[in-house]
């Protein structure tokens, strides 16, 4: 098993290397010269050339690439062009809202999706099942930003229960932060619950008819125990996968939600970086998100090992 984990770890490094390369190339070949953007329309060609030299943009791509890799290995994502600080610092400052937003969204999504999905499968074809399936279809087709706007309009503007926007002041306490996260997490949670619900239901339907479930019943145990201990545990692997992927999706989707809710997270950082051609920041954010994807996948694989004794690579 240790060998398997090592293998997976090396695989992760390989994937990250590919991602790093792709990100590097895409960011460079995208149109727009950051030096020109930085200096504005009035700058002379001379000024632009000087700045390009200072940023190393005048070097051949290969040289830039090698330099970039070297920096990366030291944990250095470079200096932001506009923010006057290292990219790692900029990202770290913005990581907290994104992290908690993702965490709470996934929690809310799972809390909605798991019980409903399990019960819908258990009562397949019932009114409850049909209602749940229909609701999931609706929820999946709602854009989260639109639901977010509705929530703001309703809970924040009309009833004043939650703040309309932002993340509280710089030294706001945890409860205030929580209040600011509530609506966006709810909006994201509701929308993402749809996919998890559908997977939970399908996965449960798969296992509920299995022979060992009948065996469990034949032992004389109650239905709750049959469903949760014997069926649900067997249905768990696809469900864990979809929860993990949803989490990864949420991180990359944070751009929109954070903009709607004015949260100073990574998504917001990326939006302003893109508008200003702040290469290092875009690069850094993309890499962090990719790394998160890879890590989540790795975590899911490790969970398989825990859940299923047959998974022994």
């Amino acid at each position: 098993m240790a060998r398997y984990i090592l293998q997976r770890f090396l695989g992760m490094l390989a994937v990250m290397f590919v991602v790093v390369t792709i990100v590097f190339v895409i960011v460079r070949v995208a149109p727009g010269d950051p030096a020109a953007v930085m200096l504005g329309p009035d700058a002379t060609a001379q000024d632009v050339a000087t700045l390009r030299a200072r940023l190393g943009l005048d070097q051949p791509l290969v040289v830039q690439y090698v330099y970039f890799l070297g920096q990366l290995l030291q944990g250095d994502l470079g200096q932001s062009i506009f923010l006057d600080r290292p990219v790692t610092t900029a990202l770290a400052e913005r990581a907290e809202p994104t992290f908690f937003l993702t965490l709470f969204s996934i929690l809310i999504a799972s809390l909605i999706a798991l019980p409903i999905g399990i019960y819908a499968a258990y009562r397949r074809g019932s009114l409850f099942d049909q209602a749940a399936t229909t609701a999931a279809m609706l929820a999946a087709s709602i854009p989260s930003f639109w639901l977010g706007l509705i929530f703001i309009q309703f809970f924040a503007v009309r009833f004043g229960l939650f703040p309309v926007s932002g993340y509280g002041g710089p030294d706001a306490g945890f409860l205030v932060r929580l209040q600011h996260l509530a609506l966006p997490a709810l909006a994201l949670g509701v929308v993402s619950s749809a996919l998890i619900l559908r997977f939970t239901r399908a996965s449960m339907l798969d296992v509920l008819g299995d022979d060992y479930v009948r065996t469990a019943r034949s032992k004389g145990m109650g239905e709750f125990r049959v469903v949760m201990r014997h069926a649900f545990k067997n249905a768990l692997i696809p469900i864990l996968t979809v929860i993990g992927l949803t989490a990864a999706l949420l991180v990359s989707g944070a751009v929109i939600t954070e903009t709607v809710f004015g949260l100073p997270g990574v998504g917001n950082l990326v939006v302003s970086a893109v508008l200003r051609r702040d290469y290092p920041v875009i690069q850094g954010a993309l890499l962090v998100i990719a790394a998160l994807y890879v890590l989540i996948n790795f975590a899911i694989d490790m969970l398989y090992l825990v859940v299923d004794p047959r998974v022994r690579y």
Binding site: D210, D211, Y212, R214, T215, A216, R217, S218, K219, G220, M221, H230, K233, N234, V307, D308, P309, R310
Partner: peptide, 21 residues
Amino acid sequence: AVRGREIAMIFQEPMTSLNPL
């Protein structure tokens, strides 16, 4: 209370009747 304790059953499919987990 009867199932399993007083009347027990062995099923047709030995390969799949036990819980794999």
